[in-house]
Amino acid sequence: MIPGWLWILAYTLIGLGVLLGLLRAFLGPKTPDRLVAVDALVTITMGLMVLLGLWYRRGIYLDIALIYGALGFIATLAIARYLEGGL
């Protein structure tokens, strides 16, 4: 089994990561900065969802991470296409 201190450490690290990503999304001087923050946050969220799935011991929760990763990617791509003037 995964020891308790490791859970605490992993959640603290990922929570701090989410906080920093949110800060960059709010501060980011221009839209590309916010977009980078959103892209990083989607990946961090996938990690968090998989870790929480292990915490709850529910294998079906991995599906949500899968769908979130695939669809957050499409949203990032759409915003990037808008920015470069291709939409």
Partner: peptide, 23 residues
């Protein structure tokens, strides 16, 4: 289990470092 715990720790550390870099 030990390998799994180590991988989880490394993973969360790199996720944090990535967010720190973004910031």
């Amino acid at each position: 289990q030990g390998v799994a715990g180590t991988l989880i720790l490394i993973g969360s550390l790199f996720l944090f470092l990535g967010a720190l870099g973004v910031y």
